[in-house]
Design a binder for these strands. Structure first.
Lengths: 342, 342
DNA sequence: ACCTTCCATGCAAACCTTTGCATAAATATT
DNA sequence: AATATTTATGCAAAGGTTTGCATGGAAGGT
């Protein structure tokens, strides 16, 4: 049976009082007498009264909804970040509306349009690899809605930001490769307009430089996406070049995984002939053969912290607010796809 | 600068007309004169007017929000289902609020409470493995909110339902194992109160029966979760028993993957000594060594169809509605972890 | 010139909640 | 006994939108 939700005035009518009295009673206002309060409360329970969030929202211009936009949701990385975010949000009374941009600027803009229409109280976003303009973000911020950018930066956009230290992670990985004797280290980098990918590449290059190794353009490739297929394509290309590497630092575990079958099928051994290091430390990475050395990222914390910062911004007075920029530390996880130190 | 959104009456004041005229003009009502209409429309554009969904929702008791509850979001299965769901919803104007129950009944109930408070227009849910009571679902349905149950069934709850044919998938997998000469086929089954797991087990048992093979209780284990760790634990237990299997049908790819290192480390070969088949066909499954034979499920379609059915129910008149029950077909994907047919 | 008809627009209520102000009754003060 | 004070409650507006009904004017018909 479809039945209407009970409202304040339903309770009011039942008790012969006014709706305002009921409202105050339920908010435990000191203005209301003890008896009235009790009867209101028990009647509310009897009618299974739930305040209408829409009406409240209309009044105080809040929706208690946070918008989240990620490039995709099916991969380990963003799914885990969202997981952290949700765990944070769980007890705050806020809800999450999640959208996927699928690495398309148009979809991202459209999603932001939708979220803006839905009047979200805040936005947490990791921009697409196509996102070069910030107008849509600026619009958002100008209408007074706090925005947190996470994982991938929007360089000229002013807001709270939460990242992982991609540079540091990459540097450590490549430095490790060098320490284990590798000299011809290839890099399968991601789309160059993503800050994460640029940072990882810089980490790679700096590690080479600091160890006095000349970079070889032949060994640096840019993959178009983050899937095993992209890795497969890239490694085929790479192994056809004259310069065969003795190590590969991939932008991603998925890309690294995609190279494995190709490498092995060419009769090359991992790590004896080619060391392999990925990035992300996905849960499955330890189950491949050989198990994959990778750079672990505090993804869950990334999501959690983004939520915490946004929430703080939402509750803060908008005047004296200064934007925060947090950088979390990654960690190299050694496994069989790279050589041991000695 | 934080500035208020333009409202109908802002436009009205600017043009010296009434708010109702503006509303009608923007809805292209035939009651409004051409000139007025044009001026309203251009003024609306100038002021960047966006209708306030909360006010509209308050009026017609709709939120255009769909609640989604899944046990977890970080795994491939549910993330992909949500992906399908989101793609469906994208152009409908509906938004998705997603919650994770983490296989906890209490969390599930709490999430439903939250979604009910948020006045969602519909609910799509895959219940936890703890969910035995349906009261929370019944409450939902009784307040007139359409519910779609997907993947995992709530046996005595009446609603739209969308499943994958787990029985069929399991039957095919085990039947294939038998056809390739396996006789001592173990089953690492999932939590017994999940319908999906029970169906897979029934498929397993029926395949044995139809091929005249006696089931051996020693070969049937129940794992407590869907992670590689659970698989690892189970296989250690299994291989310590007197009866060593010549094949394993796991409830899950993740569980199957967890068994691999243990099997290989015991000096057993896959598939020569032990064939291995999983369920789900996760994207990484083809990258393990040996690559994993698995039962592919149309997960994306599962999410998509759930959305379509819910949407249809929401728009339908509530009277003459008859619940639907859709079953999608899985498909066995052969790889190296099982023996070839001849 | 008057009545009908039609077209374009405005008024006001409804959706539900919160809150400043007013009011009524009861008690305390002089 | 009359006024001041406290205590408990109601009224009404606001928030933004939609929509049935009423109204105003102009055009058409006789």
């Amino acid at each position: 049976m479809k039945r209407r939700h009970a409202t304040l005035s339903d309770i009011a009518k039942a008790l012969n009082v006014s709706a305002s009295t009921v409202s105050r009673a339920l908010h435990d206002s000191p203005l209301i007498g003890k008896e009235t309060k009790d009867s209101v409360i028990s009647m509310a329970k009897a009618l299974n009264y739930r305040p209408n969030q829409q009406a409240i929202g209309l009044l105080n211009k809040k929706t208690k909804i946070i918008g989240v936009i990620v490039p995709e949701i099916t991969g380990y990385f963003f799914a885990t970040a969202i997981n952290g975010l949700q765990d944070f949000v769980e007890n705050t009374g806020y809800k999450l509306i999640i959208g996927q941009s699928n690495e398309s600027f148009d979809q991202e803009a459209k999603l932001m349009e939708t979220l803006s229409l839905a009047r979200v109280d805040g936005l947490i976003i990791s921009p697409t690899s196509e996102t070069t303009s910030n107008i849509h973000l600026e619009n958002f911020r100008e209408s007074g809605i706090p925005v947190v950018v996470f994982d991938r930066d929007c360089p000229h956009f002013l807001s709270d930001k939460v990242f992982v230290d991609d540079y540091e992670g990459a540097f450590q990985a490549v430095n490790y490769l060098i320490k284990t004797g590798c000299r011809r280290i290839a890099h399968l980098g991601g789309p160059g307009n993503l800050t994460t990918c640029r940072c990882r590449k810089r980490g790679y290059l700096d590690a080479l430089i600091q160890n006095g190794i000349r970079q070889d353009p032949q060994l640096i490739l840019e993959v178009s996406g983050f899937t095993p297929d992209c890795g497969e394509e890239a490694i085929r290309d790479l192994l056809n070049r004259e310069a065969i590497p003795d190590a590969i630092f991939a932008v991603n575990d998925a890309v690294a995984i995609g190279t494995m079958p190709v490498i092995l099928e060419k009769g090359l051994r991992i790590p004896q002939d080619i060391s392999l290091i990925g990035f992300d430390d996905e849960p499955y990475s330890r189950f491949f053969k050989p198990s994959l050395t990778s750079v672990w990222q505090p993804v869950y914390e990334l999501g959690l912290l983004s939520g915490r910062i946004l929430m703080n911004h939402i509750l803060c007075s908008p005047e004296d607010y200064t934007y925060r920029r947090e950088i979390l530390k990654p960690e190299l996880v050694l496994r069989q796809s790279s050589k041991p130190l000695m």
